[in-house]
Each structure stands twice: as C-alpha cells, then as structure tokens.
Amino acid sequence: MSSPVTNQPQAMQGYTTSQWSTNVMDCFEDMGICLCGTFVPCILACRVATDYGECCCLPLVFGTTLAMRTGIRERYHIPGTICNDWVCVTFCGQCTLCQMARELKARK
C-alpha cells in the first residue's frame, strides 16, 4: 500500500506566477462590469463564459462559476486554492464574477 500525500507539489523551474489584476472587492474599478454584475449577473456570467472560451450557456449549470474561477487561476498561474475559490463564489458571488470579468478583460 502506498503512503498518503503529505506535501503539495512545488513550482517547477521556468514556471511563473502572477496575481489577480484586481481584488474581489474592487468592483468599482470598471463601472460597466460592476453595474452588469449588480443588476444582471446572469448576463455577466454568460459573458465571462464566452470570454473564457466556453459556451455562453455554461453558467446555467450549477457549479460552473467555481470551475471557471479555478480554470482562470490555473490558466494565468494565479496562486490560490479551490477552497478559497469556493468561499469567494459562495459568499461574494457577484463580486467574484466581476473580478473574473475584469481579469479576462485585462488579459485580452
């Protein structure tokens, strides 16, 4: 029987990390995204999915916002954990959605 994994894998050589371009609570950095996230978050979620490269109907499936946030983190080598992603999506859903939209807009 094998022993359990007790350490996280470390960064490989040549692997660079970055940070989110804005924080979760920086909603007023882009007023268009902020207003859309406040009043019609379903439209913003569809836009985020499209900008991420997925079908615009993806946010209609439960749990996909968490998957997209984790995917954005992985794509752009942003440090974090899926637990942190879950907390952000669960307790600050609209702000997190706005952060994801701002990040994808900044990385275009």
Rank of each mutant, 00 (worst) to 15 (best):
1 M>T: 10
1 M>F: 05
4 P>G: 04
5 V>S: 15
6 T>A: 13
6 T>K: 15
7 N>V: 15
7 N>H: 12
10 Q>C: 01
12 M>D: 06
12 M>R: 10
14 G>R: 05
14 G>A: 11
16 T>P: 13
16 T>S: 15
20 W>R: 07
23 N>K: 13
23 N>L: 10
25 M>I: 03
26 D>M: 09
26 D>G: 13
27 C>D: 14
29 E>Q: 14
31 M>D: 08
31 M>L: 12
32 G>N: 14
32 G>V: 04
33 I>A: 10
33 I>R: 10
33 I>M: 05
35 L>A: 15
37 G>K: 02
37 G>H: 05
37 G>N: 06
38 T>N: 09
38 T>H: 03
40 V>N: 12
40 V>I: 13
41 P>Y: 01
45 A>W: 03
46 C>A: 15
47 R>C: 13
48 V>L: 01
49 A>K: 05
49 A>L: 07
49 A>N: 07
50 T>V: 11
53 G>N: 05
53 G>C: 09
53 G>I: 07
54 E>S: 08
56 C>K: 04
57 C>G: 11
58 L>K: 05
59 P>I: 01
60 L>R: 02
63 G>Y: 03
65 T>M: 10
65 T>E: 13
66 L>I: 05
68 M>R: 06
68 M>G: 02
68 M>P: 03
69 R>Y: 04
70 T>Y: 07
72 I>H: 02
73 R>P: 00
73 R>N: 01
74 E>N: 12
75 R>I: 00
76 Y>T: 02
77 H>Q: 13
78 I>G: 11
79 P>A: 08
79 P>F: 04
80 G>K: 00
80 G>N: 04
81 T>L: 00
86 W>D: 03
86 W>Y: 08
86 W>V: 05
87 V>L: 09
87 V>K: 12
89 V>I: 09
91 F>Y: 06
92 C>V: 03
92 C>G: 07
93 G>D: 08
93 G>N: 11
94 Q>Y: 08
95 C>K: 08
95 C>F: 03
97 L>T: 12
97 L>D: 14
97 L>A: 02
100 M>P: 10
100 M>W: 00
102 R>G: 02
104 L>H: 04
104 L>D: 01
104 L>C: 01
105 K>W: 01
106 A>H: 13
108 K>M: 13
108 K>W: 06
